[in-house]
């Protein structure tokens, strides 16, 4: 168990270093001088020189990288070039908004996804199963931003039930969370079904039935816990993808979360902000996946007692 955790932590540290490196490269392999690109034609050479100095891009690359990593560790990545606000405080503000939205849609996706997947597995081969899986594949194939617009048209414009944009009242969360969560709910439902079907073929499920366990408990208690590992793996990746995917939804509902920050920074080519958003979204993603991997130990006693990988 300890070995497993240690191994996993080492790997994470390595990946985190890799991420800083990749993000750093990202900015520096932009064809042409990044500052020039950022300022486009607005700048005269003098100004470019000045901005370079401000951002520290006139220093040699290795030194720049070390400064960047130092900044990343100290949570200080300089100021946005355009708004002059510290990058970290902008990120934090955006992150809180997005995290709330993502958390709600995650809950939505997990509840709907797991219960529909279980239901489909229980009713395997029956019309309920085919129906649910058809809906799931439809949900997986529809772009979230399009679902968002359709929801806006139906519930905001035609029925006039729910607000069209913003996040200033609790009701506002409904449409964005559904739009963001649908795709994930659909894929959770699919993997839950597959994993459950795999598990219910196992001998211990037959043992449970032979003991006289209620059919519902066979599924909930005996099968689900065993089916959970692939589901949890998916959940981890998805929570991260949801943070990133929320930028599409944020655009539709005019929400100023971290996604909007990322898109704006890239369209404005605001160098420090681009670095900051990309880096920290990736870091959050990696940390979530780490937590997921460690949570396997809670599910699977083989990992807990040090046998499995």
């Amino acid at each position: 168990m300890l070995l497993y955790i240690a191994k996993r932590l080492c790997q994470t540290v390595f990946v985190l270093v890799g991420i800083t490196f990749a993000t750093f490269c990202l900015i520096n392999i932009v064809p042409g001088d990044p500052v020039q690109v950022m300022l486009e034609k607005r700048a005269d050479p003098e100004m470019i020189q000045q901005v370079r100095h401000e951002l520290g891009t006139d220093k040699p690359l290795p030194e720049q990288y070390i400064n960047f990593v130092e900044g990343a560790v100290k949570f200080d990545l300089g100021k946005s070039y355009f708004s002059k606000e510290p990058v970290m405080s902008m990120l934090l503000r955006g992150f809180l908004v997005t995290a709330k939205l993502a958390a709600i849609s995650f809950l939505f996706a997990v509840t709907i996804g797991i219960s529909c997947g279980m239901l489909a597995a229980i009713k395997r081969g029956k019309p309920t199963d085919s129906f649910l899986m058809m809906i799931a594949i439809l949900g997986m194939s529809a772009p979230s931003f399009w679902i968002a617009i359709i929801l806006q048209i139906i519930f905001g414009l035609k029925l006039n039930l729910l607000p069209l944009s913003g996040l200033d009242q609790p009701l506002c969360y409904i449409l964005p969370s559904i739009a963001l969560g649908t795709r994930y709910a659909a894929s959770i439902a699919r993997i839950t079904r597959t994993s459950m079907l795999d598990v219910i073929k196992q001998d211990y499920i037959r043992t449970a039935r032979a003991k006289g366990v209620k059919e519902s408990m066979v599924f909930i208690k005996h099968a689900l816990k065993n089916a959970l590992i692939p589901i949890v793996t998916l959940l981890g990746t998805q929570l991260g993808n949801m943070l990133a995917g929320s930028m599409l939804i944020e655009k539709v509902f005019s929400i100023s979360g971290i996604g909007k920050l990322a898109v704006d920074s890239m369209t404005n080519r605001d160098l420090p902000l681009v670095q900051g958003t990309v880096l920290y979204i990736a870091v959050i993603f990696v940390v979530i996946n780490l937590i997921v991997d460690l949570s396997y130990a809670l599910i699977d006693p083989k990992i807990r007692y040090g046998k499995g990988a």
Binding site: A208, K211, V213, N226
Partner: peptide
């Protein structure tokens, strides 16, 4: 029916399976 059968299984009629390695639930 299913419920009556369930009451009988494990209580009146019990079964020991062929595959001891895989017949116990690994997570309990």
């Amino acid at each position: 029916n299913k419920e009556e059968m369930r009451q009988i299984r494990g209580n009146n009629i019990a079964m020991i399976f062929q595959e001891p390695m895989t017949s116990l639930n690994p997570v309990y």
